[in-house]
Design a protein around this nucleic acid. Sequence first.
DNA 1: CCATCCGTGTACCATATACTACACACTACC
DNA 2: GGTAGTGTGTAGTATATGGTACACGGATGG
Lengths: 117, 117
Amino acid sequence: MEGFGDYLRKVREQRRSSDATFSVRQLASRVGVEPSYLSKVERGQQPPPSEKTIAALASELDEDADVLLALAGKVSGDLQSIIRRRPKLFADLIRQLKDMPDHAVLRLVREVRDGEW
Amino acid sequence: MEGFGDYLRKVREQRRSSDATFSVRQLASRVGVEPSYLSKVERGQQPPPSEKTIAALASELDEDADVLLALAGKVSGDLQSIIRRRPKLFADLIRQLKDMPDHAVLRLVREVRDGEW
DNA sequence: CCATCCGTGTACCATATACTACACACTACC
DNA sequence: GGTAGTGTGTAGTATATGGTACACGGATGG
């Protein structure tokens, strides 16, 4: 399976092909980490960074933070805090949706969003 | 606000009033930690234990693990892994449900469970 | 009065997390 | 051939996490 590092490198190289400021060094600088650290993360020599750093990466690379966090084996703190406010409710719902096909969950998302229920 | 420790102590004392095996020592032993550690956790001198230990406590005390974890500021690993499999889908859904009243979310849970949709 | 339970205080510890600091070798440009 | 930029290797570090080990003083019961 493609890990966090592989994906990160792929996306960054992609961006770099049309924008030289997406070098390891410059991206690292904008994100607020050392270049060697970012390099190691991309090559899987270091585990994925903290949520904060991942969020900065997502923002710079114009990627979805939740997807990046997922690849890093994490779930964003704000989602967690929503769940923690009503643990039983959300735990039940999420476990029930576990094996539902994507389109079914998506339909639910849309129905809630559009207030058609 | 009532913390994890306060709640834990309250529940344990409750159980203890009708079952002497719910002393700090004996419970700690069944759960697999040192009694002094459990004592400190109950009094908030130590932060809440790991998910594994919380799960064991929940099981022994016949409490809801998700609720206990929430009090500890955590979200269970299995819920997180469900979310991570489809990050966008679940992130959207959860954020949309953030400010919905309990009864609305509950209705959703029931509808999904009963397949009436 | 002794054994056994009780809760708790003090001190310590192993492992994981999330990095920094700096040097090195390579390439490209003018 | 110096300067600027590139990726990466080595070494070290601060803080958090999740506990253990053991001793102490008090109550309880035979």
